[in-house]
Design a protein around this nucleic acid. Structure first.
Lengths: 206, 206
DNA sequence: CTTGGTGTTCCCCTTTCGGGGGACACGGGC
DNA sequence: GCCCGTGTCCCCCGAAAGGGGAACACCAAG
């Protein structure tokens, strides 16, 4: 029995590429292709594939959300996040959501196939080459909900006073949160806090 | 005689996808695949393809630089930038560098084929659907070299004083440049200047 | 040649930030 | 019960940042 695979990516070119890569393997069968996270969840339910190759960035529902939804319904789901490197935070979140693997898009087709087989067999592919090392050198940073909220508003260019109004708190509170954020990120000004958080995937523009 | 095409993208998955899309067309031939900008320039010289499908973001030399180099050597080169939307500034730069088309990666394979034919025939494909509109609503912003330099250092989290030292000018000068940047971008603080510039592709992290 | 625009440079003044603390309430975990 | 993380708020003060001019060089157009 072949390994049944579902792909989820909003770029047709990427879907085509994965289809082409999989087509060469006799024992791997592409059962469906989703174009966004919501569709991925629906198609997973409909086909119950052995492995899901999921993009992180998608419309409607992103890869993290789709992974959470699928794993919630089927704890045994084998999902591989296949994306470009967008910061260590996304890796933590993907694995935290239940992903069994994390592949970078600059890997060769052979690596994709290899990963599908490994994950289908119940294994995990926590990038031994790339992410693993990056993760070693970048201590994990956990911001609280409030800190994340304040940082997000800071990224929009709001002043402490306006952030305070936005969240219904005093400016002193906002300053305290931002101070903690800067400490955790190891920087000493709001602009650096924002760019570092963006690089590490802790926050996103949009 | 078939339309001879060269692709340039650092993601194997994407190259596979383009190869698969092109393989279905009898009159289009994929003559070579580059994995970065420098290779694209070399392969262009070696094969002189009719059309180049070029990614914007690549190692060593990016799509803009590769386009400039190719066009400098062959003014008649027909290059299509094929990338995800990363701000209007990149579109301006790509077209300014000599690209004949600008395709978004979320377009269907048919659109890619259509574009190849149009550009091969000497036409231009300035995205009639996406970029065109976005360009209408986002007035073009041109920052001077100095302003760009100051903004870039600001994004790294440097203080005005340190930026001043870095470029060998006084802090007052840096503040003036930054003030102009904020005016041009329509914001009133450095953090917003950075995030807006990032969104529009005027500057990049890394 | 003179005008006008652009890019660069600089200073003064007011507002906002960042860093050093510390305080108190609430909740879960040991 | 006690501790610790989280969230809230406060003070003080020096350091940055933002806003409003303004001078100068340069180049292109009238």
């Amino acid at each position: 029995m072949p390994i049944r695979v579902l792909t989820a990516d909003d770029h047709p070119v990427v879907r085509n590429g994965l289809r082409a890569i999989i087509a060469n393997e006799r024992d791997i069968e592409l059962v469906a292709e989703a174009t966004d996270g919501a569709e991925a969840v629906a198609l997973y339910e409909a086909h119950r594939p052995d492995v899901v190759l999921m993009d992180l960035r998608m419309p409607r529902l992103d890869g993290i959300g789709a992974t959470r939804a699928i794993v919630a319904a089927d704890a045994g789901a084998r999902i591989v996040m296949l994306t470009t490197y967008e910061g260590d935070a996304d890796i933590y979140r993907a694995l935290g959501a239940g992903a069994r693997g994390y592949l970078l898009k600059d890997m060769l087709g052979a690596a994709v196939i290899q990963t599908i087989r490994t994950v289908a067999a119940g294994g995990r592919v926590i990038p031994p080459d790339v992410a693993a090392r990056l993760v070693e050198f970048t201590p994990r940073v956990d911001l609280t909900e409030r800190e994340l909220e304040v940082l997000g508003l800071t990224a929009k260019g709001l002043r402490n006073r306006d952030i305070a109004r936005a969240i219904g708190r005093t400016e002193a509170t906002v300053k305290a949160h931002l101070k903690h954020v800067m400490e955790k990120l190891g920087v000493d000004d709001r602009t650096a806090a924002v760019t570092v958080a963006l690089q590490r995937g802790i926050i996103h523009l949009d």
